[in-house]
């Protein structure tokens, strides 16, 4: 057996072992809980910022986008801030309203006054969201924000928003690390952790955080 054949087989053993550990044991959940950020005791802020997570071609919010939007709207309804910023660009085809537009409609339908809603429709990355939203909020003297995103995305989002000069309290929209119990959900959780770890490294190298 040649050396590289041996290497491929060893890699195969590792791959199968990692797959079994991730899918069938709570190891991934433990890593997810350490990696993710939890909400602390939330204090009233100047604005609630709900980060984008995608809209489907038919104009329906993605599951994550909907979860974040509902969490932000719930915070507003608890009177945690007088303003809510809904983020999310339109799709490249430009046929349907932007993610922020769809969320604003939902927020109005759930009783939020249109005058309390700000939309960020141009930012395509978390960093752009931080820069654009900070520029929108600064002239309004709104520097203390409740940042709404999912627990795994929060670590990067928190750093990049703090870097843009805002005082941020994390308000997570899920606790995926605890709720992922089926093998499929655990594999998705592991994939998200890898993805966010790579994004953190990229942001660090690029000097964004």
């Amino acid at each position: 057996m040649r050396v590289w054949e041996r290497i491929i087989r060893c890699l195969g053993i590792v791959t199968v072992a990692v797959f079994i550990i991730i899918a069938l044991t709570p190891a991934g959940n433990a890593v997810g809980r350490r990696f993710g950020v939890a909400s602390g005791q939330l204090k009233r802020a100047d604005a609630i910022v709900v980060l984008g997570a995608g809209v489907m071609p038919n104009g329906v919010l993605s599951e994550q986008s909907m979860r974040r939007a509902i969490a932000g709207i719930a915070l507003f309804r608890r009177d945690m801030a007088p303003l809510i910023v809904l983020s999310g660009p339109g799709r490249p085809d430009g046929v349907n309203p932007s993610e922020a537009g769809v969320r604003a409609k939902l927020a109005i339908a759930m009783g939020i006054p249109p005058g309390s809603i700000l939309m960020e429709e141009t930012a395509k990355t978390t960093r752009e969201e931080a820069i654009h939203i900070a520029n929108t909020l600064r002239p309004r003297d709104a520097t203390r924000v409740l940042l709404v995103t999912d627990s795994l995305h929060m670590r990067r989002a928190l750093r990049v928003f703090e870097r843009s000069g805002l005082h941020v309290q994390p308000a997570v929209s899920d606790d995926y690390a605890s709720s992922a119990v089926s093998p499929g959900d655990r594999l998705w959780l592991a994939m998200r952790i890898c993805q966010e770890s790579a994004a953190l490294v990229y942001y660090k190298i690029a000097g964004y955080i």
Partner: peptide
């Protein structure tokens, strides 16, 4: 079973290569 392990090893290599090239 050995063939399965070889396939799993190749899969890991191709997936990593595709992701890195894509990025």
């Amino acid at each position: 079973l050995r063939a399965l392990l070889d396939w799993a090893g190749m899969f890991a290599i191709f997936l990593a290569a595709n992701l890195m090239l894509g990025a």
